[in-house]
Computed example of a mutant assay.
Amino acid sequence: MLGEQVLQQGAALGVRAAQELLAVVLQEVEPVTYQMVRAHIATLRRAPADAPPWPPSVCQVTGWLTRHPTALTEEERPD
């Protein structure tokens, strides 16, 4: 699809703002909506599959420390 190619070219050029990328695509006379461009940019911003997991939030750690050990799920319990 031409729109997909233009989106990838714009991303390769460093265009990360949805409005700017939409303007590039619309210049190519491709029927693309702002929501389509935003969805594509969201996929570019996702962490790669081999990225380490996010650290736990302060709320999660607080919950682990303040709840009774029997109330923790299997994943939350220390090894």
Rank of each mutant, 00 (worst) to 15 (best):
54 W>K: 14
17 A>M: 14
78 P>G: 13
24 V>K: 07
49 A>W: 04
7 L>V: 02
4 E>P: 01
77 R>V: 07
72 L>I: 10
23 A>F: 01
64 W>K: 10
44 L>E: 14
75 E>G: 08
69 P>E: 10
69 P>T: 10
26 L>R: 01
42 A>H: 04
56 P>V: 06
26 L>S: 02
72 L>G: 05
67 R>A: 14
13 L>G: 05
26 L>M: 05
4 E>V: 12
62 T>P: 00
5 Q>P: 01
30 E>A: 04
59 C>V: 15
36 M>G: 01
66 T>W: 14
68 H>L: 14
49 A>Y: 05
44 L>R: 11
66 T>K: 15
3 G>L: 08
32 V>G: 00
60 Q>P: 00
9 Q>E: 07
40 H>K: 12
73 T>S: 15
22 L>Q: 02
19 Q>H: 06
52 P>R: 08
65 L>R: 15
75 E>H: 00
68 H>V: 08
8 Q>L: 11
15 V>Q: 02
79 D>G: 09
57 S>Q: 09
77 R>Y: 12
40 H>Y: 15
67 R>K: 06
6 V>Q: 08
40 H>F: 15
44 L>G: 06
19 Q>T: 10
45 R>A: 12
74 E>F: 02
37 V>H: 00
47 A>T: 08
72 L>D: 07
51 A>M: 08
25 V>T: 04
29 V>P: 01
63 G>Y: 03
71 A>D: 15
31 P>Y: 00
3 G>T: 13
56 P>T: 06
48 P>T: 06
13 L>K: 07
79 D>L: 13
74 E>Q: 10
24 V>L: 10
76 E>A: 08
42 A>Q: 15
61 V>S: 01
13 L>P: 00
69 P>Y: 10
54 W>D: 12
13 L>F: 03
31 P>T: 02
35 Q>H: 04
50 D>E: 09
12 A>D: 15
78 P>L: 15
44 L>D: 05
7 L>H: 05
55 P>C: 09
52 P>H: 02
69 P>G: 05
71 A>M: 12
26 L>K: 04
47 A>D: 06
6 V>R: 12
68 H>R: 14
46 R>C: 13
16 R>A: 11
33 T>H: 11
57 S>E: 07
78 P>M: 13
3 G>E: 10
10 G>V: 03
50 D>C: 05
46 R>H: 11
73 T>M: 03
57 S>I: 07
8 Q>D: 11
